[in-house]
Each structure stands twice: as structure tokens, then as C-alpha cells.
Nucleic acid binder design. Sequence first.
DNA 1: TGCGTAACTGGCCGCATGGCCAGGAAATAA
DNA 2: TTATTTCCTGGCCATGCGGCCAGTTACGCA
Lengths: 123, 123
Amino acid sequence: MSEDIAPEIVLALEIDDPALADRLAALLGNIAGLRLAEPGEKAAAAIVTRDPRIMPEDIALTQRELDVLALMAEGGSNKMIARQLGISVHTVKFHVGSLLDKLDATGRTDAVAHAARRGVIEL
Amino acid sequence: MSEDIAPEIVLALEIDDPALADRLAALLGNIAGLRLAEPGEKAAAAIVTRDPRIMPEDIALTQRELDVLALMAEGGSNKMIARQLGISVHTVKFHVGSLLDKLDATGRTDAVAHAARRGVIEL
DNA sequence: TGCGTAACTGGCCGCATGGCCAGGAAATAA
DNA sequence: TTATTTCCTGGCCATGCGGCCAGTTACGCA
């Protein structure tokens, strides 16, 4: 078989901060079984920044707002979301409005993008 | 001074594949200056999966469609996108329609979510 | 020369979306 | 009790959105 060849794990280093990237590159540069990806090379995994600035504070969303948000991220229309949650379209609009406020979004697409960016939802 | 304390870089391991996660944990387990994050601990960076399955084939999007998609992900309305790209709202709708087809989405929100999921755009 | 594709524009139309107004019901805390 | 919060519902309306029709221009390719 070929699984005992112990193929190298290729890691892509996707860090913006030059200092941190350098330190990681130095630390990971010569580990047997591990290799950093060349630019453009496809890697098995990537090292990405976990920037705390992006999540200022977990935005205070109510449970219902999270429900609506999740269904929005699935592309659901207000009507679909209403059916799914067993509430009226008006109520869905109400929650969507609150979400736009809290997430500082211009529309439902922006709201989903913002929420995904700050980790409120997993796309 | 405190810089000779050699502060550890805390790395979160966020890999779904257990086999790959184990191998990475073993490789990174005892490197001086590096430490894997405890569950819940906030890390400076994270190792995430670069799963090629998610991008079945780079969906054939034209340059203009990518332009429109990027602005959609920023929450731009058709009118805003039209102004940004210097084209008419009709043309924007035309490209949006193509995007909905190609990305198999029910609406612009769904399109952005799909595109983000398969790595066509970076949120 | 013709062919296909990408980009672009227009009109039309039905529905969705989001903002505004108003209100009610229930649970929890002061 | 009162007050607060969350959740819920309705009407109204201007605008956005997406699907449908049709057309033009420009490019590269056979």
C-alpha cells in the first residue's frame, strides 16, 4: 500500500501579519512530514488568522433572530422562513429588520455576509 | 525586557478529518515556541481544512460575473453595482441572473452563500 | 464569411423586500 | 403591581428583485 509512505502534509500559510507569518514559517520550515505550500500550490490545510478584532463582542442576537438568520443564509425568502418557523411573514420581516440593525447591514445578503464574517453563523 | 520570554504562538486546530488532525497534532505537538490551543482558547491563528471536494470544478464564471458577485457579497444593490461598474441596472440584472443559474441559487443571498462555501469568493 | 460567446441594453410584470405605522401576549425582574 | 424584554401580528407603500421577452456590439475562431 502507499499509506506508509507518510506523504508530506502541505500547509498553506495565509497570514496577513508579516511578523506572525515569519515566525510561523521559521517554526514550521523544517519539520519532517510537513511542508509549507508554494504560492498557488493547493494544500491539505491552511493556517489562517484568528483576528479577535473581527468579533468585537458577540452581537446580542435573540434566539429567534438566530433562527431567521440561519434560514436567510440558506437562501430562504421571508415566506419560506415564515412557513419553516410557523410564524407570519410580518414577524419574519420584523426579525429581519432587527438583524439589519444589529449587524449594520444594508440588506439580507449583507446581513448574512456580515454574520458569516464575524462567525455568528457558519456558512 | 520581555521579548526573550519567547511567547508561544497559540494555534487552533480546526480540522474535520480525524486522520489529518491527528497527524498534524503529532507533528506540531512539541515544537518550541508553538502550542496547540485548548478547546475554547483563543488562538493567534487556526489551521483549517482546504478541502478540494468543496470546489468540484471551478465554476465557469466570467470576469464580469465575478465583479458583480464580489459587489453582491458587499451588500450592494443592483443600482449600486451598476454605478460601481459603470453599466446599466439591466446589465447587472443580466449578470445576476447568470450567477443564479451557474451557482444554482434561489436569490442573491443564496448565491453569495454558495460562492463563499465553495471558495469562489472570500467573505 | 459565418458561428459562438460575452457583454451590454431595453421594456414589462409579478412578487419580494424593507421601512414605517400601530398594536397584543407572555415571561422575567424590580 | 409596574416595567422591560422578547416574540408576535397587522396594514400600508415605495422600492428592489428576478424572470421573461427582445435586441445590439465586439471579439475570437473555424
